[in-house]
Design a protein around this nucleic acid. Structure first.
Lengths: 141, 141
DNA sequence: CATTCATATCAAGCTATTTCGATATATAAG
DNA sequence: CTTATATATCGAAATAGCTTGATATGAATG
């Protein structure tokens, strides 16, 4: 079926000694990687990219309290309009926020569903890192 | 207490008409923004940055199945060693994976806790985007 | 229909990130 | 102590992403 790279098997054999086990492990790992659809990974990475900017995180925090127009966001964060517009379009493309046109205003709100969840999860990871860091400091590491 | 920018109130007044309501809204929004600690936001953004790369997402997917050394990861993903080492250090700095030194090997595993959760959440968002996209296509938008 | 106001898009400069070969470090084995 | 192997770090080139003023679009208003 899938062509197991001889080179990979050789490297793995050198790593773990047993040639049969190596072939088996390479096979397993390559099956795993094969399951990762390039396209799916790309989409997930695009969502994380949208979340990976301090300014955009602040926008999401503001929108947790309810719908806002671009004006209100730029007043709150004290940033130029073109910049806010740009960030909002990135968040929208990632499916994290929704837009509602209302006359000459564009009102934005969080998408239903997992957006608040993912913001909560990252806070948990951040807090775990902090307590870990304090623990390490206490042990003079 | 907090100095409400006159300029912001003026803009908001033009937006919503009533000057008192404008002052109140600007006050509310700026209190909200004030609560956002620059430092905390920066840390959360660093975690999302670590997640925002296709190659690093693939590494995390592999590690879901268990501990792996750098070798095994570079064989699986067929990428140069220096590149894998670099990505692993970014994931480690973000607290998403843990390292265990074992002779000349460095073995990496997912951190306990929310890492798998956050990967699940992003998949939910991605899938919501897809069904939304199909719906839109169905409506010739 | 000219103007105003809210928002979007463009373009150019700047910064951060990725990539990967080359080199360094560190552990084990002979 | 030399060699081999696993991993980390460095450095330079390429790429991607952010910022922001200028300009364009498009809806309301007079």
């Amino acid at each position: 079926m899938s062509s197991i790279s001889t080179e990979a098997v050789n490297r793995m054999t050198r790593l773990i000694g047993d040639c049969d086990k190596a072939r088996c492990q390479v096979d397993k790992l390559q099956k795993l990687t094969g399951k990762l659809s390039e396209e799916e990974i790309e989409k997930e990475s695009q969502i994380f990219k949208a979340l990976a900017d301090p300014c955009r995180l602040k926008i999401l925090m503001l929108l947790r309290e309810g719908e806002l127009c671009v004006c209100e966001i730029m007043i709150s964060l004290d940033r130029p309009q073109s910049s806010m517009s740009h960030h909002l379009s990135i968040l929208k493309d990632a499916g994290l926020i929704k837009e509602r046109k209302d006359g000459r205003w564009s009102r934005y709100r969080l998408s239903e569903g997992s957006v608040i969840e993912i913001l909560n999860q990252v806070r948990l990871i951040k807090e775990a890192n902090l307590t870990k860091a304090n623990f390490d400091r206490g042990n003079n590491k």
